[in-house]
Amino acid sequence: MVQTAPGGRAVGRGFVMEVTLGAAGREPAPVTILKPARGWASLDLKELWRYRELVFFLIWRDVKVRYKQTLLGAAWAVLKPLFSMIIFYIIFGRLAGIGTDGAPGPVFYFAGLLPWVLFQDGVTKAGASLVAGSNLITKVYFPRMAIPLAAVVAGVVDFMVAFAVLVVMMISYGVHLTGWVWTLPLFLLLALVTSLGVGLWLSAMNVAYRDVGYVTPFIVQAWLYASPVAYSTTLIPQGPWRVLYGLNPMAGVVQGFRWAILGVGEPALGLLLTSTAAALILLISGMVYFRRMERTFADVV
């Protein structure tokens, strides 16, 4: 007889996973304990890590389907920020005459729109993702966070495509890369963190209250004007105001993004730190709320 010995024990979501040695010791056969969950659940990111292949396949599905179903496919990834760029250039650049920190208008706006579109698509898609995946939620177990996470990360592919266009634009306008371009992935990551944080809140609320689906476009639109996409942070008065402005994490993202590739504006460390802190608070609170609501998803959706 093979002796079964309890191994590591982690408490999470009302399930206690005990790892024991299975028959012949080939693979550990986990013991799942089911009992009512009470109160706040732990984040249990280990479980999400165990399901990383599923997250990968969900991202891959989202990307594939997005490019398969549309006539123009990858072109949309470019067209969306391109149209917004043209509008911003005409209205804010030409008519309103708002300054672009000395950078060529089109490049200035396009560089701001890239992280913004990543954020906007991530929030919108993640917000609707659980409801769209209700057939999965009611039939199979996996960490539910995989669904909004995949929806957010899938946007990176669109981002890359649009980024290639930005590079072409920079070359044709003769804009030189700065030495700080290596910080770009950090701002990209900050955009993803913010997007996921908001997406987790919205998706979990959307399961119980479909109103969220109607509210999301307004939130996103208001957020756009609260972020320095169509204007520069230099419009905001120096000092404490600008640091406070960083409470909108997208302010830090967009500002930092432009600074890293165009060298316009300044690193604005205070603003950046506030933004990073705000983004992390959004993400962590989103995760906690999501985990708390998660156990009712299958019953309510």
Binding site: G14, F15, T20, G22, A29, P30, V31, T32, I33, L34, K35, P36, A37, R61, K64, V65, K68, Q69, N135, L136, I137, T138, K139, V140, Y141, R295, A298, D299
Partner: peptide, 30 residues
């Protein structure tokens, strides 16, 4: 584990594969 119990207790030894519906997650475009 699709949904949580309201009361009671259960123990499942080993990985669980559930087939509550065939084709869960199939995407027509793929």
């Amino acid at each position: 584990r699709v949904t949580d119990p309201t009361e009671g207790y259960a123990e499942v030894h080993g990985r669980v594969g559930s087939l509550l519906e065939v084709g869960t997650g199939f995407h027509p475009e793929l």
